[in-house]
Write a protein that binds this DNA or RNA. Structure first.
Length: 209
DNA sequence: ACATTAATTGTGT
DNA sequence: ACACAATTAATGT
């Protein structure tokens, strides 16, 4: 079972650290659609994503959801790091985009490793870094980009994480994640189809370019 | 195989 | 944004 762990992390972590992870981590499988982290929840374990894709959403007080970014194999959630270290509640919601596996690591260990392993420190810092810049581009999207550009961005990201140019989502679901209405999505999608950028089917969208 | 229903998507106001 | 039409998938008979 720990083949997976090695495969995902052996390029980043030194062998000793991987051994330690193996000895303390609990592997947890999740299924598509599972709510991994809810808003307001305390986080006592730190997840390392081994397999699958997780999406990170922010929720508006009025009940709108907004997609922030996707997590892929070898990533961890920066929010979790902040929560663990600062002992605060989660500000975000994490939902499984596909089936997958995470390794859960006790916070005590992760603090211990910070001093002990250089590769771990690097991992934590660069995760922060990466997420920060993803947050910035998410903000850019919101502040400066029109809905049609955001939609196209979304489709591209989604195609990337699923490693497939076919996106299996209804217009309604997309609208939720971009925090807009379904009608807007339908119209924009159709416009994109007319431009020959995508192909529209029921329940699926195929990215052509 | 057919009819009914529900869900998804398209369009006009 | 809303209402409704059109299309397609799901289900029961």
């Amino acid at each position: 079972m720990n083949e997976l762990l090695k495969e995902a992390y052996s390029t980043i972590f030194e062998p000793k650290l991987i051994e330690e992870i193996e000895s303390v981590a609990t592997l947890m499988d999740f299924n598509e659609g599972d709510h991994l982290i809810e808003i307001g929840q305390y986080i006592r374990q730190m997840p390392l994503l081994i397999n699958g894709v997780i999406k990170i959403l922010r929720e508006d007080r009025t009940e709108g959801e907004l997609l922030l970014y996707f997590l892929e194999k070898g990533d961890t959630c920066a929010m979790t790091l902040a929560c663990c270290l600062g002992d605060t509640k989660s500000e975000i919601r994490a939902i499984a985009e596909t089936n997958g596996t995470v390794a859960m690591i006790p916070i005590t260990k992760m603090e211990e490793w910070l001093g002990k392993y250089k590769s771990w420190r690097n991992f934590v810092f660069s995760s922060y870094n990466k997420r920060l810049s993803e947050m910035l581009s998410a903000i850019d999207n919101l502040a400066f980009m029109k809905m049609d550009e955001r939609l196209l961005n979304y489709l591209r990201e989604k195609a990337k994480v699923n490693r497939s140019s076919v996106i299996a989502n209804t217009h309604q679901e997309i609208a939720y994640e971009l925090n807009t209405s379904r009608v807007v999505i339908s119209r924009l999608l159709k416009a994109l189809e007319n431009e020959g950028i995508i192909k529209l089917n029921r329940n699926t969208i195929e990215l052509l370019k």
